[in-house]
């Protein structure tokens, strides 16, 4: 087995907010009927977390569970646990119509940290990032310039997830947006 490396190997940029590639994180895509009791029970059993409400994301320690669409969940686990978690989910969901896949290596994760992290993202996406509208606990799937992405508030910063194939593009976007001199000071 070859050694896994993240898309940009931890590239970072110090602008008026800090932008960095966050390295490897286990991500599992789970599709199925999220309202079904069996699915709820299986997810709870494997992750210890209840399925979040519409557009919400919940955490417990290193694990997380995000609502992606009415039939899709994003399961966050440490990178090395992804394979075992997929197997555990498949066992727990045996006989239930569902799909689970380890998508960790298909994604790139970024961290945007600093007082004005919100505005760095607001420049790139059509999302209302006003502190009263976009709050901690919400997972927003949207676009960053030309590519799909998702982000949420975590540990005092914003975590951004995008496809690995566009990792460099997303990093460059965030970098340009965080360039000193580009402060908006709106919020």
């Amino acid at each position: 087995m070859s050694e896994a490396i993240s898309a940009l190997q931890g590239a970072a940029f110090e602008g008026y907010v800090r932008v960095s590639e966050a390295g490897l994180r286990g991500m599992i895509s789970l599709r199925g009927d999220l309202s079904a009791a069996k699915v709820k029970a299986a997810v709870k059993k494997v992750t210890g977390l209840a399925i979040p409400d519409q557009r919400q994301i919940v955490f417990a320690g290193e694990k997380g569970l995000g609502w992606m669409s009415p039939d899709e969940l994003l399961v966050l686990v440490p990178y090395d646990d992804a394979g075992a978690t997929v197997e555990a989910l498949q066992v727990a969901l045996a006989g239930v119509h569902h799909l689970t896949r380890d998508v960790s290596d298909a994604r790139a994760i970024f961290r945007v940290e600093g007082d004005r992290a919100r505005e760095v993202l607001a420049k790139l996406s059509p999302t209302d990032l006003h502190p009263d509208r976009f709050r901690e606990g919400e997972l927003r799937r949207t676009r960053l310039a030309q590519v799909p992405a998702a982000f949420w508030i975590e540990d005092g910063g914003i975590t951004v997830v995008a496809f690995r194939s566009v990792a460099q593009y997303v990093f460059d976007l965030l970098k340009t947006s965080a360039e000193p001199g580009g402060e908006v000071n709106l919020w």
Partner: peptide, 12 residues
């Protein structure tokens, strides 16, 4: 109607 987001045209 699925995720409740007031999506702007460029997201659609």
């Amino acid at each position: 109607p699925y995720c409740g987001v007031a999506a702007e045209e460029t997201e659609l």
